[in-house]
């Protein structure tokens, strides 16, 4: 069991409002990712759930019980830190066992659980080593082991993969997801990497300047961004945002078209522009086209078109996939 409810949670440091009233319902067993640019308050929100910070106002409930004033040790959550925060003076075994020891579990049972967790995470050969003798990926596993062994109501992850190299990050991403599904334990995961968010989450919370901009499944966010911020934040390369007269033609203050929804051709209909830069990735080509009156647009084409810098091309947006926003930046109904 582990549903988490935030009700109008606020946090301010002095006069600065870090979290400006967040309400959220996290269902038991779901994988929820907090994503947003740095300084958006996502880590603070996680620490509020953990109890490592006091809320200024509002209420946090876990499984329906109010835990707003309960110290972190008593909330029954476990956390994986960005720095891993392993106890340097304890062995891997000691690290994983620490929480159980604090709970006063008998020794035999601790050993059994620690060894169980170690075998799931392929840590068995390293149980007696100290953290400083482990690689980054192994430390990461120890931190995860420490979290799962206590069978918490929920896991909290604070950018756990940001210290790993790219290849390992992809691998750990899959492992964490698999593990979470296997254990069916609620997980709250903070990241600034939208790819991580899209691939791991059941539901994503997009945060910006201390406000929740949108809460939904990855596909919802991609297909129906609630506002300009989410539209610009989710998707890579970024959605093209076009204002002025062009948007007016569509009855909106701003329109957005994703690069993958633009067709590039040498002639025919569409906006005419000059190719400024072309990035060849092999499978895809991103071309950046300067369109007079509109600005620089990014388009994604599959494979190679043989388009060169300086060439004039036509860009045709997929009419069904144009996102329209009002003057406040909110999405208009299709």
């Amino acid at each position: 069991m582990g549903s988490i409810t935030l009700e109008n949670v606020r946090k301010s440091f002095g006069s600065a409002d870090i979290i400006q009233g967040a309400s959220l319902e996290i269902e038991d067993g779901s994988f929820v990712v907090f994503v947003g640019p740095s300084g958006c308050g996502k880590t603070t929100l996680l620490r509020l759930i953990a109890g490592l910070e006091d809320v200024t106002s509002g209420q946090i409930r876990i499984d329906g019980a109010d835990v707003t004033d309960v110290p972190p040790a008593k909330r029954g959550l476990s956390m994986v830190f960005q720095s891993y925060a392993l106890y340097p003076h304890m062995s891997v075994r000691g690290n994983i066992a620490f929480g159980l020891k604090m709970a006063g579990m008998p020794k035999g049972e601790i050993d059994r659980k620690v060894e169980g967790a170690a075998s799931i995470l392929n840590l068995t050969p390293y149980l007696e080593r100290k953290p400083r003798d482990l690689s980054g990926g192994q430390r990461q596993r120890v931190a995860i082991g420490r979290a799962i062994v206590r069978e918490p109501k929920a896991f909290l992850f604070d950018e756990p993969l940001s210290n790993l190299d790219a290849a390992l990050r992809v691998q750990m991403r899959q492992e964490v997801t698999r593990l979470q599904k296997q254990l069916a334990t609620t997980a709250v995961y903070v990241t600034h990497d939208q790819v991580e968010a899209m691939t791991m989450a059941d539901r994503i919370v997009v945060l910006n300047a201390g406000r929740i901009e949108q809460y939904g499944s990855p596909l919802e966010l991609y297909e129906h961004p609630a506002n300009l911020f989410v539209a610009g934040f989710i998707g890579s390369p970024k959605m093209n945002l076009i204002g002025r007269e062009v948007a007016g033609q569509f009855g909106a203050a701003t329109i957005g078209v994703r690069p993958e929804h633009i067709t590039v051709a040498r002639d025919g209909e569409g906006w005419e522009g000059t190719v400024g830069v072309a990035e060849h990735l092999g499978s895809d080509t991103f071309i950046y086209v300067d369109v007079p009156q509109v600005g620089t647009l990014t388009a994604r084409t599959v494979g190679e078109l043989g388009i060169r810098v300086g060439e004039r091309v036509r860009l045709r947006p997929d009419q069904r996939r144009i996102h329209r926003f009002d003057t406040e930046g909110r999405a208009l109904a299709a």
Binding site: L52, P72, A73, L77, F81, A85, F98, M102, A103, R146
Partner: peptide, 9 residues
């Protein structure tokens, strides 16, 4: 903080 999360007083 990790210790605190691990339930240490």
């Amino acid at each position: 903080e990790a210790a605190r999360m691990d339930g240490a007083t």
